[in-house]
């Protein structure tokens, strides 16, 4: 992305994403944290569009912004009242140190690694894949990755049944 417009969009999305993620973990009001989390998810969806992953951007909006954020807001509403504020635990300084150390290690290894990058002018078939992402992704899911695909279906079923069993009122048969 060597044009100016792409640069501006990337940095705007990066600032929105990182800023709202920082607010999620520092703000006191849990309800506002849930709304800011939706902003983070939308920023990441924008970054997916920048990375030629339009299908995943739509999935991100549908599942993260549409379903997971709403579920979290529901949970905040159902448990509100006792949870006055969102204080830190006693291990906060340790957490900060560990996080800073991990960031240092990650940044160092990202910068010094030698990546096997794609050529800047892509061969025509590669270019084609990035234009028709949903088709190629769908074909991959029902050919090479069909076993994980089926297992994911079973996992979702188990999760739904498990969640229902957990929240069922006790004593109600």
């Amino acid at each position: 992305m060597d044009n100016l417009f792409g640069e501006i969009v990337f940095w705007a999305l990066a600032v929105v994403t990182v800023g709202s993620a920082l607010l999620v973990v520092t703000i006191r009001d849990v309800f506002r944290a849930a709304l800011l989390l939706a902003t983070t998810f939308m920023g990441i969806a924008g970054l997916f569009v920048m990375l030629n992953a339009e299908f995943l951007a739509v999935v991100q909006i549908l599942i993260y912004v549409g379903a997971i954020s709403v579920l979290l807001v529901f949970a905040v509403m159902l448990t509100r009242g006792v949870s006055e504020g969102n204080r830190g635990t006693p291990v906060q300084p340790v957490a900060l140190t560990v996080a800073a150390l991990l960031l240092g290690v990650l940044a160092w290894s990202i910068v010094q690694a030698e990546w096997n990058l794609l050529p800047t002018d892509l061969p025509a078939p590669f270019e084609e894949v990035f234009i028709t992402t949903p088709q190629v992704l769908g074909r991959l899911l029902i050919s090479e990755f069909v076993l994980p695909f089926e297992i994911a279906g079973v996992l979702l079923l188990a999760a739904v049944v498990g969640a229902l069993a957990l929240v069922r009122e006790s004593g109600e048969e």
Binding site: V18, A21, L22, V24, V25, V30, A33, A34, L72, A75, V76, T79, S83, N86, R87, G88, T89, V91, Q92, V94, A95, L96, V98, A99, A100, L102, L103, L106
Partner: peptide, 16 residues
């Protein structure tokens, strides 16, 4: 990732 890890380790509210 680091922001998320800091939040997971340091917040009291389980929803956060």
């Amino acid at each position: 990732f680091v922001i998320g890890m800091y939040g997971a380790l340091s917040r009291r509210n389980i929803i956060t």
